[in-house]
């Protein structure tokens, strides 16, 4: 999706203005910590996954995406997931209370499961039946695709030619997984693009940007 989230190469967002590493607090307000905990441990609709999480974030109204702070984005995603999945109603979200007579579940993730889940979750490598199409050192072109759904091919890379640096084996494919249409794993590659290729003749002749791209994002160059 060509949303506002696809920011690589944009101007106008101002300086990075980083906080000093030694002084930056982990949370800028207590609610941020609660929101992280909620996001990690709440019960999601069946089939929900990390790619769907990212996609729903990308569906935030663009001005809110830009104006709201990071953990407030997580709030927006959780609420949309609950509403869309029928786990809560709009009135319940607004009031902060379960509707009278609504059933209470007893299967929420427990505190004593947290450490193990943090250790074992999030492995996205998968077997792929077909051999890889591309080899390290090969020149490839990122295809010019403009899916309205979720993708991890940023606009600034499309149509550009780079060189495969690493082949990572098979990985869950976000473009289908985000829409609960299956993991459909594909070979994943890191491709290096020169800055000049990406940005034009005024860019550095020396620097590069490396991007992790699934096989269907690429064609031989």
């Amino acid at each position: 999706m060509n949303g506002v989230h696809d920011m690589g190469g944009m101007h106008g967002h101002g300086p990075v203005a980083p906080e000093d590493e030694k002084h930056e607090p982990l949370w800028h307000a207590p609610w941020e910590a609660r929101m992280l905990g909620i996001t990690r441990s709440m019960t999601y609709p069946k089939g929900f996954n990390i790619d769907r999480f990212r996609h729903i974030r990308e569906l935030m109204p663009p001005h809110l995406y830009l104006a709201r702070s990071y953990y407030d984005h997580w709030y927006a995603v959780c609420v949309a997931a609950l509403l869309n999945g029928g786990l809560a109603t709009k009135e319940e979200i607004k009031s902060g209370h379960a509707a009278a007579g609504s059933a209470k579940r007893n299967d929420a993730a427990r505190a004593d499961q947290v450490w193990t889940s943090q250790k074992t979750q999030g492995i996205f490598t998968r077997e792929v039946a077909t051999p890889p199409q591309f080899a390290t050192g090969q020149r490839v072109r990122a295809r010019n695709i403009n899916p309205t759904g979720h993708t991890r091919l940023p606009r600034y890379v499309r149509g550009k030619v780079g060189v495969v640096q690493i082949h990572h084996g098979g990985h869950v494919f976000p473009d289908t997984n985000a829409h609960v249409q299956g993991e459909a794993p594909q070979h994943l590659y890191t491709v290096a693009f020169s800055m000049r290729e990406l940005w034009g003749a005024d860019a550095s002749a020396r620097d590069e940007t490396c991007v992790d791209l699934w096989e269907s994002y690429l064609e031989p160059a």
Partner: peptide, 15 residues
């Protein structure tokens, strides 16, 4: 300037 005004081809702004 690659700023937010350059919206050609973007998705997500609704109806």
């Amino acid at each position: 300037m690659n700023s937010i005004h350059d919206v050609g081809g973007m998705h997500g702004f609704g109806a």
